[in-house]
Structure formats: structure tokens, C-alpha cells
């Protein structure tokens, strides 16, 4: 539990939502991290303003991870700071610990949230918005945030219990498996979305064998765009190319 009162812990948890508030290229989330841990530091160094400044300076160093995973590191760092404040730990341990964890947790968070959960929620929202926009928006927000807020809550609590518990949380949460599942779900939903919309066009454009032909064209289109994306062509470039093609047709 640590020596923090409930109200300080809650304050730190809320402040974590602002981790990227002052995102900059030099220190990345450094100001956000210091802002988050500050209530805890003020508590540990209540009567030692000079040590507070010293500790704040080391927590203003370069930091970057996935915003939803920051709580795990911040919680564990707060625990180390507590031991530093009571003279049981070396402050240099904090730097090593943070640097080692931020990359790994960044990778876990980027894969899970940006690479799997967000596409899944997005495509579910896009499909359901064909029925009603409100339904689509509700699905998007709920699918993403149920998991998002849960990870924030559990991750921070695990971090606050110390480094070992932080790592145990990461292992037990099974992010790699979850990431894989969400990715496959997103791909299935993406396929369904492409299928629904191309069948709509095929139905409007003709009957019988032409529909199969249309499906093959749609399949080819998806495949070509996928290859282009893999070759690092950006969506903007594809769209601008289509804009030029379209404009040429108009002025023909």
C-alpha cells in the first residue's frame, strides 16, 4: 500500500490522464510525469523542500511510454522514491528502472492500444454507424474505454505495490495474447465492413455474374492498397492521387 494516503493516490491517478499535456521533442512526457508524481513527492518530502526539488529534477528527465501504461511505471517509481526518501535506496536506481521499463511498456501499449484495440473499436463503430450514428459512436467509445480505463486502474494499483507486482501485472494481464485476439477481431470486422459496402455497390450497379466480377475488383483494390501501405505510401498520398485523377476526368 505504501505510505500514501488514499487522497494522494487518487490525485496521482487523475493527474496521470494529463501525462502528455506538455509533450515536447526534447523530454517528451517529462513534464507530465513530474506533474503526476508531484503529489506523492510532496508527501514523502514534507519537511525537506530541498530534497523535494532534487527529486523533482530527476523526475523531469526524458520520459516516454504509452500514455495508458504510464501509471505502472509512475506507481513503481513512487515506491522507489519512498525508499529513497527514507534513505533505503539509491536515487540512481530510479533512472535505470524508468529507462528500462518505458520502452517495453511503450511497445506493449502501442501494440495493444494503437495497433489492436483502437482499430477494433473504430471498425466496430464504423459498421454500427451504418445502422445509426449514435450506435456507432457508443460502440467505439465503450469498446475502447472499458479496456483503457481498466488497464489504467489496475496498472497503477500494481505499480503502487512495487516493481515485482508491476511485472507480475504485465505477465498476468497477457497483453501479447490480448493484442493478437483484438487484431484478429479487427481484421474480421474490417473484412465484414468491406464486404457489406461492396455488396451494396454491386447490388446497385448490376445483377448476376457482374457481382462476382465486382467482388474481384474490390478484392484487388484492397490488396493493392495494402501493398502500397506496406511500402510506406501514406493514405494522404493515395487520396491526393485520386483527387488528381478525378480532376482530370472533370476537365476532360
Amino acid at each position: 500500500m505504501g505510505g500514501l494516503t488514499h487522497s494522494v493516490r487518487r490525485k496521482v491517478w487523475w493527474r496521470l490522464f494529463l501525462l502528455q499535456g506538455c509533450w515536447n521533442y526534447e523530454g517528451m512526457q517529462n513534464v507530465g510525469f513530474a506533474y503526476g508524481i508531484l503529489p506523492a513527492l510532496r508527501h514523502y518530502y514534507r519537511e525537506r523542500p530541498e530534497d523535494l526539488i532534487k527529486s523533482l529534477k530527476r523526475n523531469l528527465e526524458y520520459f516516454n511510454t504509452h500514455p495508458a501504461m504510464g501509471g505502472v511505471i509512475l506507481g513503481a517509481t513512487a515506491r522507489i522514491e519512498e525508499r529513497v526518501a527514507s534513505g533505503e535506496a539509491d536515487p540512481r536506481a530510479i533512472g535505470t528502472f524508468k529507462v528500462a521499463l518505458m520502452g517495453s511498456l511503450g511497445a506493449i501499449g502501442d501494440s495493444y492500444f494503437w495497433g489492436a484495440l483502437k482499430p477494433m473499436a473504430s471498425v466496430a463503430g464504423a459498421i454500427l454507424s451504418l445502422i445509426h450514428p449514435a450506435l456507432g459512436i457508443a460502440a467505439l467509445l465503450l469498446l475502447y474505454n472499458l479496456s483503457h480505463v481498466l488497464v489504467r486502474l489496475k496498472g497503477f494499483a500494481a505499480g503502487m505495490d512495487g516493481e515485482e507486482s508491476a511485472v507480475r501485472f504485465l505477465k498476468e494481464a497477457g497483453f501479447t495474447g490480448r493484442t493478437e485476439d483484438r487484431k484478429i477481431l479487427a481484421a474480421i470486422l474490417g473484412g465484414a465492413y468491406a464486404g457489406v459496402l461492396s455488396s451494396k455497390t454491386a447490388f446497385m450497379s448490376g445483377e448476376g455474374p457482374s457481382a462476382v466480377g465486382f467482388f474481384i475488383v474490390a478484392l484487388l483494390a484492397v490488396h493493392i492498397v495494402t501493398v502500397l501501405f506496406r511500402k510506406a505510401v501514406s493514405p494522404s498520398e493515395i487520396m491526393l492521387f485520386l483527387l488528381v485523377i478525378g480532376t482530370i476526368f472533370i476537365w476532360r
Binding site: 528500462a100 520502452g103 517495453s104 511498456l105 511497445a107 506493449i108 501479447t176 495474447g177
Partner: peptide, 18 residues
């Protein structure tokens, strides 16, 4: 540093697909 630190290695291993 990492080669001699099993704790940090185990965290990194969690970060890549199996």
C-alpha cells in the same frame, strides 16, 4: 547491461509478439 539483468529482459520479452 541487459545481458546481465534477467528482470529487465523478462519485461522486454513481454513486449514483442510470441
Amino acid at each position: 547491461d541487459l545481458a546481465g539483468n534477467p528482470f529487465l529482459r523478462s519485461v522486454m520479452e513481454l513486449a514483442v509478439p510470441p
